[in-house]
């Protein structure tokens, strides 16, 4: 079996992955709505296969302060999920969820106890929304590790997954989703990094090989 890479995907296969992105984002918006007790909408996600070195630019530049949530995926396939949003957008989510109890920007940057537990919870919910869309759509049984959170420069947060991808490819699959709650617009970037051979398993399960 030859290895399928992101850059080799055809239109139909990309559409199938985009649909997973759509449903994952929908799940995430529903989960957020439940948490805040208000309606949270989302816009149709943008799904792109982009060169690795351009990923930090998509996030606002390599020095942009971002929050990253990492989950290892295992079960029927193995891989990695990285969910990234800017600190400013993380702050908006915190304010929507926690109101006056929300941690300050400095608390988020320092990742104190309140900030890290709140962000861990949000990261967990959002990431597992995408993962359950992937599991539902493919019918594959998937598990994930306890989420790991980091706040730092975008370049530094994403290089770990770029390193992982770069062992066999020079491209990444990036799903950009905008959540809308009243006037607030919050952009989340979701990266799916299947290990070698796992992208084939996804495509096979989707019937788009």
């Amino acid at each position: 079996m030859t290895m399928v890479l992101f850059e080799d995907l055809n239109e139909m296969q990309l559409d199938a992955l985009k649909e997973i992105g759509n449903i994952g984002a929908g799940n995430a918006a529903t989960a957020l709505s439940k948490m805040v007790g208000k309606r949270v909408n989302m816009e149709v996600p943008l799904v792109r296969v982009i060169p690795l070195k351009e990923v930090p630019d998509w996030l606002g530049g390599p020095e942009k302060e971002v929050l990253g949530v990492y989950l290892g995926v295992f079960g029927a396939l193995t891989g990695h999920i990285l969910f990234v949003m800017t600190i400013d957008d993380a702050l908006k989510i915190m304010r929507i969820l926690l109101g006056d109890m929300a941690p300050s920007r400095d608390q988020i940057l320092e990742m104190d106890e309140l900030a890290s537990s709140a962000m861990g919870e949000i990261g967990n919910i959002l990431s597992s929304s995408y993962l359950s869309a992937l599991a539902d759509f493919t019918g594959l049984h998937l598990n994930h590790s306890v989420p790991s959170i980091a706040v730092d420069m975008a370049g530094a947060i994403v290089d770990i997954v770029l390193i992982e991808i770069s062992q066999h490819s020079d491209y990444a699959l990036l799903i950009e989703t905008v959540f809308v709650e009243e006037e607030d617009r919050i952009t989340g970037y979701f990266m799916l990094i299947p290990d070698t051979g796992s992208l084939e398993i996804i495509l096979q399960a989707l019937g788009v090989v």
């Binding site: 790991s148 980091a150 530094a156 770990i160």
Partner: peptide, 14 residues
């Protein structure tokens, strides 16, 4: 050579 995420994943030790 930083370890950006804490956890047991071997990826983090790169």
């Amino acid at each position: 050579g930083a370890k950006m995420f804490s956890g047991a994943d071997t990826l983090f030790d790169i």
